[in-house]
Design a protein around this nucleic acid. Structure first.
Length: 482
RNA sequence: CGGGGCGUGGCUCAGCCUGGUAGAGCACCUGGUUCGGGACCAGGGGGUCGGAGGUUCAAAUCCUCUCGCCCCGACCA
């Protein structure tokens, strides 16, 4: 039996991606113990392994948010209906998916509260109190929190009733400053997602049809999942003065004149975890980028005889000491599972590197490393481990990105007209299609109606698509999406 | 929210059509042998069949309602 056949037989009931991608996704999320269902409709529990992933995402992104001058704060979960209603487009966008609190204890409330679907309204209200002078600007705040949207159809991480995110909210004296902020944070997202999550993205602006409710402009980073559908991985909104006007957020400029502020908001969510799963996962389970993997390397000790056991244990301790805190290491010394069982388990959970330590390795004063991404094996001498393992992890990070980029390139096609865009999705239903867009809503609507694909963004970098640039047209990226 | 499918020990599912009071594999517990790709033997615990109501001498099985999950579509991070 070949290695591949043996693997197929033993991988416990994981649906192949090619058989049913949705099913594969749901199975991986649960078998890898990222999340599970709960008694609350549409709300999942993020289990410790999944939450550790989120904590790594938070840590790496929070660092960047602070490095660009922002401070964290926390605003109320509940938003008075009167505040939410102030911005007309905003309410219209969110009213259908608001959950409401109407009672406290045994008393009915005079005014009901929305459980925040996003915090523009409550933050706008407070900014109007805090901002008086141009000297108070810019205001650069961010909050990490949960939000709730009463979605009709839910899927773990991709769309849940309650989810976790960060939302940045800023106020600026001038339009150019706000625009700069919007693009700065968009670039932070691009760099973060590509560097830490190893997911290549297209950066661009949303069309009017896809714009955030109440925003002047919405910018996005869009990624391509392995089933050929696009996923919005982060957004950055230029709010203009819409909220400033309804919440009366004004300042006195240097001439003593009253001015409305210019605002932005930007966010990424736990949906990023879904993106990680769907961009890097394979038929054996997750493949996590080392930079965010809760466990970067797992040691599986192997022994036959009691004497081996003692020797292996002692050697594992030396390995642990040699590595110190250079890698996030887990030693699985449970003796109720065989090494083979553990191999499959950690492949399902996407641990980037497995280190096998058995009698042979002890004899060689080395460990046998196996990469999750390529399955390449390599014996690493104990003396070289502290150098070699971090290098191996770095290489896996790069390799996962390269694979994802290769997949995206292979699933991106150029179309020269609306008819070609439609023809592509009628034939394929997957991938990115880049095409010249005349800017009309009719174009978008027709593509959407006939194929289900939407205009994901107008890429800001069109250098690779110069062949289709045309006067009076924008380069646009179409895809079916989550 | 429309169309379709499914809810039976922790998991995957059989039983339902043709009512007679619940079964398999895996998982779990105990003991022993094992351990380099999901080990084996022996013994053992666990479900009242998503929920409510109805029909019946009798309901997992038939009827009604309801909740949840999955897929496809419309809406959204």
């Amino acid at each position: 039996m070949s290695d591949t056949e043996a693997r197929k037989q033993f991988v416990e009931d994981l649906t192949d991606q090619s058989d049913d991608f949705s099913r594969w996704y749901l199975e991986v999320v649960r078998k890898a113990q990222l999340a599970d269902y709960t008694p609350v409709r549409g709300s999942m529990v993020i289990r410790p392994y999944g939450y550790a992933l989120w904590e790594n995402i938070q840590r790496l992104l929070d660092r960047r948010i602070k490095a660009t001058g922002h401070q964290n704060a926390y605003f109320p979960l509940l938003i008075p209906e009167s505040l939410l209603k102030l911005e007309a487009d905003h309410v219209e966008g969110f009213a259908p998916e608001c959950a409401w609190v109407t009672q406290g204890g045994s008393e009915k409330l005079e005014e009901r509260y929305a459980i925040r679907p996003t915090s523009e309204a409550i933050i706008g209200h407070l900014y109007s109190r805090w901002i008086e002078s141009y000297r108070d600007l810019p205001v650069l705040m961010n909050q990490w929190c949960n939000v709730m949207r009463w979605e009709k159809v839910t899927r773990p991480f991709l769309r849940t009733t309650e989810f976790l995110w960060q939302e940045g909210h800023t106020a600026h004296a001038t339009e150019p400053e706000a625009r700069e902020e919007v693009l700065r944070m968009l670039e932070v997202y691009r760099e973060f997602v590509e560097t830490e999550l190893a997911i290549p993205v297209h950066v661009g602006q949303k069309s009017d049809a896809e714009r955030f409710a109440g925003a002047h402009e919405t910018h996005t980073v869009e990624a391509l999942m392995k089933d050929g559908k696009a996923l919005q991985a982060g957004t950055s909104h230029h709010l203009g003065q819409h909220f400033a006007k309804v919440f009366d957020i004004t300042y006195q400029d240097e001439q003593g004149k009253r001015q409305y502020v210019w605002q932005t908001s930007w966010g990424v969510t736990t949906r990023l975890i879904g993106a990680l799963v769907m961009v890097h996962g394979d038929d054996q389970g997750l493949r996590l980028p080392p930079n965010v993997a809760p466990v970067q390397a797992v040691i599986v000790p192997i022994w036959r005889k009691e004497a081996d056991r003692v020797a292996v244990r002692a050697f594992v301790e030396r390995v642990r000491e040699a590595l110190g805190d250079r890698v996030r290491l887990h030693v699985d010394d449970r003796d109720q599972y065989s090494p083979g069982w553990k191999y499959n388990e950690y492949e399902m959970r996407g641990v980037p590197v497995r280190l096998e330590v058995g009698p042979k390795d002890v004899a060689n004063q080395a460990v046998m490393s196996v990469r999750r991404d390529s399955r390449a094996k390599e014996s690493i001498p104990l003396a070289a481990l502290a150098e070699r393992l971090p290098a191996l992890l770095a290489d896996i990070q790069v390799s996962l990105y390269a694979q994802a980029e290769g997949f995206r390139a292979a699933n991106t096609v150029i179309a020269h007209s609306k008819a070609e865009v439609i023809a592509h999705f009628e034939a394929e239903r997957r991938g990115f299609v880049v095409a010249p867009w005349d800017g009309s809503a009719e174009f978008e609507a027709e593509v959407k109606e006939k194929t289900g694909a939407t205009l994901r963004c107008m890429p800001s970098d069109t250098s690779r698509f110069s062949a289709i640039e045309r006067p009076g047209h924008r380069v646009a990226l179409f895809a079916r999406s989550y």
